[in-house]
Simulated scan of single mutants.
Amino acid sequence: MERMLDPAVADVRRAVREALAPFADSGARVLVALSGGADSLALAAAAAHEAPKVGLEVVSATIDHGLQDGSADVAERAAAQAREFGIRTARVERVEVGTAGGPEAAAREARYAALRRIAAEEDAAAVLVGHTLDDQAETVLLGLARGSGSASLSGMSPHALDGAGLAWIRPLLALRRATTASFCTASGIDAWRDPHNVDERFSRVRVRERVLPVLEDELGPGIAEALWRTAEQLREDEDAFADMIEETIEDIVEHAEAGIAVSVAALGANPPSLRHRIIRHVVDAEFGVSLSRAQTLEVARLVTDWRGQGPIDLPGCQASRRGGLITFSAERS
């Protein structure tokens, strides 16, 4: 009698199968970001099982940040496990981690830069990342604490294209961390337990170990799932707003000397939420700068509360009202 597939194994494989479906029969390569923890090992094992069924090749990359004693051994062990899954190309890359933005942000920046480079070298069409529902819930809470708006509260996207056309896919984003742990147990996979995941110097760990348990105790179970649903709904709203902004910008934006200009009348005719998004979008697209809410509101006053005020200095540019236009210029007066 055939042994029944463990539910956790079935869930993870199904999620990976659905994520790979858009690439089926393309002969493409997909790159798995493999840390050696339970989430990424479950992802790698499921990808190695599912990808060949639809004509895809899997490669893996383990990034050694060099931040812990024995990190090189951990990385090599993860690569060896990938080969045991049937992943023939299992790369290990050592990176130098800077200090900008703190240790978490610096490590993330170094890791993603390495993954982008490896994906290009391996001609991969997509990078698979092992974030789970729990990671999404933590991301939403951190965004809420920063007060960074709906774009941050919408969390991580399950499928996104970067500027180079590389797909970043998170197949496990609707599954709990406990599911990946059960997958590894059922599959006989010995996962590495990263000491940084319980180091409360890091804000994400404090959210995981302190904040979410308190919310569960005080408000009842299901908080992580509720935060995940919130992210899903807000991401749908963000996508809708993005489409509206793209359509609107074509009609109200024009090139200006050393920058770009937006029609005052058109901005004024839009509701505040859309007006503010247009301002942020224009500055980000033209100058690569993300405006804070306070900065956005100050620019919006050039439209709604115009009293002859002078130019506003912003990161990387300057905003000023000139006749019927709000002009964003790289040159400062």
Rank of each mutant, 00 (worst) to 15 (best):
L5H: 11
P7I: 03
D11P: 06
D11T: 11
R14E: 12
V16C: 04
R17E: 09
A19R: 05
A28T: 08
L31R: 00
V32D: 01
A33Q: 02
L34S: 07
S35L: 10
G36E: 05
L41T: 07
A46H: 11
A48V: 05
E50P: 13
K53R: 14
V54E: 12
L56W: 08
V59N: 06
S60L: 07
I63F: 06
L67R: 11
Q68F: 12
D69R: 14
D69H: 15
A72S: 09
A75R: 08
A75N: 01
A79E: 01
A79N: 00
A80L: 00
A82D: 05
T89K: 15
A90G: 05
R91L: 12
V95M: 10
E96C: 07
V97D: 06
V97M: 06
A100N: 10
E104C: 10
E104K: 09
A105T: 07
Y112T: 03
L115G: 04
R116K: 13
A119C: 13
A120C: 10
E121H: 14
E122R: 10
E122N: 13
L128T: 00
V129F: 02
V129D: 00
G130T: 02
H131P: 00
T132Q: 04
D135K: 08
D135L: 09
E138N: 02
T139N: 02
G143P: 01
L144D: 06
S152E: 08
L153E: 05
L153Y: 07
L153W: 07
L153D: 05
S154I: 07
S154K: 12
M156N: 11
S157C: 10
A160Q: 15
L161A: 14
L161S: 15
L161I: 14
A167C: 04
A167S: 06
W168T: 03
L172A: 02
L175E: 07
L175Y: 05
R176K: 07
T179C: 09
A181F: 03
A181D: 06
G188N: 01
I189T: 05
R193F: 08
R201Q: 09
R204P: 05
R208Q: 10
E209Q: 06
R210K: 11
L212H: 07
V214S: 11
V214Y: 12
E216Q: 08
G222Q: 08
A224P: 01
R229G: 00
Q233Y: 09
Q233F: 09
L234C: 06
R235I: 05
D239S: 14
A240F: 12
A242D: 13
M244P: 15
M244I: 15
E246Y: 15
E247A: 13
E250V: 15
E250L: 14
E254N: 13
I260P: 02
A261K: 11
A261L: 08
S263W: 08
A266I: 11
L267C: 08
A269C: 04
P271S: 02
S273L: 04
L274A: 01
R275C: 00
R275A: 03
V282W: 12
E286R: 15
T296V: 05
V303P: 04
V303M: 06
T304H: 06
G308R: 03
Q309M: 00
Q309S: 03
G310I: 02
G310K: 08
I312V: 06
I312A: 04
I312C: 04
G316N: 00
Q318I: 07
A319P: 04
S320E: 11
L325A: 06
L325M: 13
T327M: 15
